[in-house]
């Protein structure tokens, strides 16, 4: 199977395999990305984050169905936690997305975090490049949903949607510092339940307080279950997108996204190299010295770095 050609032609099997390569750090991934990167930069990437139980998956499924009208294609990357003990994962978001499972213009991929802590996996970034190259107009990244530490999604998406549900008063207070700052659009899901208005008002007051930016994040009330208000989210995303375009911020974001693409790969490669470096027999003695408290970590790091950068 020629995965590169397949991806560029929008073939689903190739897209799926390409993402597996990226996830597995397969040597073929680098080659693939090299071959497709020139065709990326067209997709609009939207991140969705929010605590467990707020209904992100159902919401994503509804949004995808609506966004995929006409000839537009939607790719979904749904991230679930990987067990730190076994390395395995149960990727359960899919269960709530069966409405669009057979839609020809929607592609859904479940991903494990595989050791990353920020709510997405390390491969999410490159997986969205694969979708981009395959001609997907929209890429929706759904984070794990573990709470306020999930700010990484902001780095891989142009628009970040923060999803909440009624009755989250305390949580909203707690989230002030983290997740509330990255939201470009706020969605109160399950708006048919008691307390939706209160939650929306709380969010609005916090958003207004903190906001000195030119973009004023809207707070929307929807019900994914009843399929109500979904178009308002897509509209808001569209408005944010044109705001970014007209203010020149989209170009900036794309540039910094490219920079982060480089940085991430660089970081991964260096980390791997350094691990390898530490495994060198010459260093074992030094590591033992640290363990015996005859030396200290800083001293050894200085030595390693010296040797590392001196390498041809």
């Amino acid at each position: 199977m020629d995965v590169r050609a397949g991806v560029l032609a929008g073939d689903i099997r190739s897209v799926a395999r390409g993402i597996s390569w990226v996830e597995n750090d397969d040597p073929r991934a680098a080659e693939l990305i090299r071959g497709i990167y020139p065709s990326t930069g067209r997709a609009y990437i939207v991140g969705l984050t929010g605590s467990p139980g707020v209904g992100k998956s159902t919401l994503v499924s509804r949004m995808a169905a609506l966004m995929a009208t006409g000839k537009r294609k939607v790719g979904v990357l749904a991230v679930d936690p990987t067990s730190p003990f076994s390395g395995g994962a149960i990727l359960g978001d899919r269960v709530r997305m069966f409405d669009v499972a057979l839609s020809p213009n929607v592609y859904i991929r479940s991903m494990g975090t595989r050791g990353s802590l920020g709510g997405i996996s390390r491969a999410t970034r490159m997986a969205s490049r694969v979708l981009d190259a395959a001609g997907f107009d929209w890429v929706l990244v759904e984070t794990v949903g573990a709470g306020q530490s999930e700010v990484d999604v902001h780095d891989v998406a142009y628009t970040t949607v923060v999803v909440m549900a009624p009755g989250m008063g305390d949580e909203i207070q707690a989230m002030k510092a983290g997740i509330m700052e990255i939201g470009d659009v706020f969605v109160v899901n399950k708006a048919d339940r008691d307390g939706a208005d209160r939650t929306a008002a709380q969010v609005a007051s916090i958003v207004q307080l903190s906001d000195e930016r030119e973009w004023h994040p809207p707070v929307l009330k929807v019900s994914a279950e009843l399929n109500q208000g979904i178009e308002s989210i897509i509209e808001a995303i569209g408005q944010h997108k044109s705001f970014l375009e007209h203010s020149g911020k989209l170009a900036e974001a794309k540039a910094s996204m490219a920079r982060r693409d480089v940085l991430e790969i660089l970081r991964a490669r260096l980390s791997e190299d350094l691990q390898h470096e530490l495994d060198q027999p010459v260093l074992q003695e030094k590591l033992d010295e640290v363990a015996n408290r005859h030396s200290d970590p800083y001293t050894v790091v200085d030595t390693v770095f010296e040797q590392y950068w001196r390498k041809p």
């Binding site: 149960i90 269960v95 709530r96 069966f98 409405d99």
Partner: peptide, 10 residues
Amino acid sequence: FGEYESDASF
């Protein structure tokens, strides 16, 4: 009434 879709719980 619509139809119910379950969340699979683990």
